[in-house]
Write a protein that binds this DNA or RNA. Structure first.
Lengths: 137, 137
DNA sequence: AAACCAATGCAATGGAAGTGCAATTATTAT
DNA sequence: ATAATAATTGCACTTCCATTGCATTGGTTT
C-alpha cells in the first residue's frame, strides 16, 4: 500500500500539507468533485491554490477531468486501471440525473467507435446519464 | 419539402423574422455552432434574443445542445433521424482538435452501453475527438 | 380600436475559469 | 547554519459565457 507521499513523489509532485489534504479528500470521495466542492471542504484555503493543485494533479496524471454535461468540470482520482496519461484511454462516466453526482466506471470499457472515412479518432468521452444505484434503490 | 414556417409552426413556435433567420443560419451550417457564432452572424440583433431563440428551439426539440468538452455549449439542428425529444436517443458527435469544429454524426449509432446493476441508463452523451476529414486530408 | 400576450432589447448579475504579482515556504548550495 | 534560489500559496483582478428582470415593441384576438 502506497502512502500519499509516495504517490505524489513518484509523479514528481512536491509534497505539501495542502496537497496531501486535497489528495486525501479526493481519495475518500466516491464521486467526481467540482472545484466548488473542494472549496467548500477547505474554506480556509484560497481558491487559486485549490485550482492550481488540481491542475498540477491533472498534469501529472493522478486526477482526470470529467465533462459530464452539467457545464461544470469535475475531477476524480485516477484509479488502478485508469490510464489517463495514455491518449487513447477510454473514459466511461455515469451521471445521475437525480442526485447530480458523477462516478467513474473504470472497469467498464468503451467499445470501439467507428467513425466515417477521413476521420481520425484520438479520444472518446462517454457519459451515460440516468439514475444511479443509490437513487434507484 | 417543408418550409421553415411550417417547421416552426408544427412545433408550436410562433414565426418571426428573427427566428426564421436563425433557423436558416443553423440549417446552412454543417457544424454545431456556439452562441457567439450566432452573435457574429447577427450583429444587429441582441444577444438575449438569440439566446432565448435557441432556448426556445431547444425546448421545442428542433435543435439539440452539444457539450463537446470545449467548455462552450454548441447547438445544432435536429436532423431527420435525430430523435432529440426521445430520452433514449443516442447522440454521437465528433470534435476536431485541429479546426475546433464539432459535427453531428447522426447516422452513426452508438452501441448499447452496459452499466452495473442498480444503474438505470436514460441517455448517452458520446463525443469522439480527433481530426476531422477536412483537416486530415 | 382596445386589450392582451409573446417577442425583443437593454442593463445588469452570477458563476466558473484563468492570470499577474507579491508574500511565504521549502529546497539547495555555500 | 545561513544565504541564495526555486516553488508554492494568497490576494486581487479580469475575462468569458450563461442567465435574468424589466421595460418596450409588435403581433393577435375580440
Amino acid at each position: 500500500m502506497e502512502t500519499i507521499e509516495q504517490v505524489l513523489e513518484s509523479r514528481g509532485i512536491r509534497v505539501t500539507a495542502m496537497r496531501m489534504l486535497i489528495y486525501k479528500f479526493l481519495a475518500e470521495k466516491e464521486v467526481a468533485v467540482t472545484l466548488s466542492d473542494i472549496e467548500n471542504a477547505f474554506v480556509k484555503a484560497d481558491r487559486t491554490t485549490l485550482y492550481r493543485t488540481i491542475k498540477t494533479f491533472e498534469e501529472k496524471a493522478i486526477v482526470h477531468q470529467i465533462d459530464d454535461g452539467t457545464g461544470i468540470t469535475k475531477y476524480a482520482l485516477c484509479e488502478q486501471g485508469c490510464n489517463c496519461d495514455i491518449k487513447t484511454d477510454l473514459h466511461l462516466h455515469f451521471h445521475c440525473n437525480n442526485c447530480n453526482e458523477t462516478i467513474c466506471l473504470t472497469d467498464h470499457k468503451i467499445p470501439q467507435i467507428k467513425v466515417p472515412d477521413g476521420f481520425v479518432s484520438e479520444n472518446v468521452n462517454l457519459v451515460v446519464k440516468g439514475i444511479c444505484d443509490k437513487c434507484s434503490g
